[in-house]
């Protein structure tokens, strides 16, 4: 009898430069496979390279199962790929760059796009680069979620820090009980 093993994956999505590739690198046990290319549009002012297809990392769990870590391309023109990547995911992590031009609008894009998944899929929102103090700060995001009547965990994260990624996973694990 053939045993079908379902893919186990976590998906990192969010705006360009929010730290998706970094977050995956922080916890992946293999070098992240990505398709970064040099940016050619105005985004170049903020980032030298960007992911055009997806990032991929892995973590081996007990029993040899592989947890696959996917990062979606940040630029919105690649959003046709997002539903393909999210399908069957264990959890969704939305990262937003607080130092971007309009980070609340960035968050709104991802909330709107993934809204149909939020009811059933544990989801966490991480706000990155808050240390630069260039963005609107956490209250702006709290207000946005409240206006959308969404009760989602949202907190500042540094995607370079393993402890912060562990905190994200702990939060997703906790949300499993209530979704």
């Amino acid at each position: 009898m053939r045993i079908i093993v379902k893919e186990i994956k976590l998906v990192f999505t969010g705006s360009m430069g929010a730290g998706k590739t970094t977050a995956i690198s922080t916890i992946s046990e293999i070098p992240v496979v990505n398709t970064d290319v040099r940016t050619t549009d105005k985004a170049r002012l903020r980032k030298e390279t960007t992911t055009v297809a997806l990032d991929y990392g892995e973590l081996t769990l007990d029993g040899g199962q592989k947890l696959k870590l996917y990062g979606t391309p940040g630029q919105q023109r690649f959003e046709y790929m997002w539903p393909i990547i999210i399908k069957g995911a264990l959890g969704l992590i939305i990262l937003v760059d607080d130092a971007a031009d309009d980070p609340v609008a960035d968050l709104a894009i991802y909330i709107k796009f993934f809204k149909s998944y939020l009811e059933d899929m544990p989801t966490v929102i991480g706000i990155t680069r808050t240390d630069l103090k260039q963005g609107p700060g956490m209250p702006a995001y709290y207000d946005y979620l409240q206006n959308q009547d969404l009760q989602l965990p949202i907190f500042p994260v540094d995607p370079r820090q393993r402890e912060h990624l562990i905190m994200i996973i702990q939060t997703l694990a906790a949300m499993v009980e209530v979704v």
């Binding site: 973590l59 947890l67 562990i166 996973i169 499993v176």
Partner: peptide, 16 residues
């Protein structure tokens, strides 16, 4: 006890 919970436990065990 959901399958998801045990998977997350396994992920956390691996990370910590």
């Amino acid at each position: 006890a959901t399958e998801k919970q045990s998977l997350f436990k396994s992920v956390l065990k691996r990370l910590t």
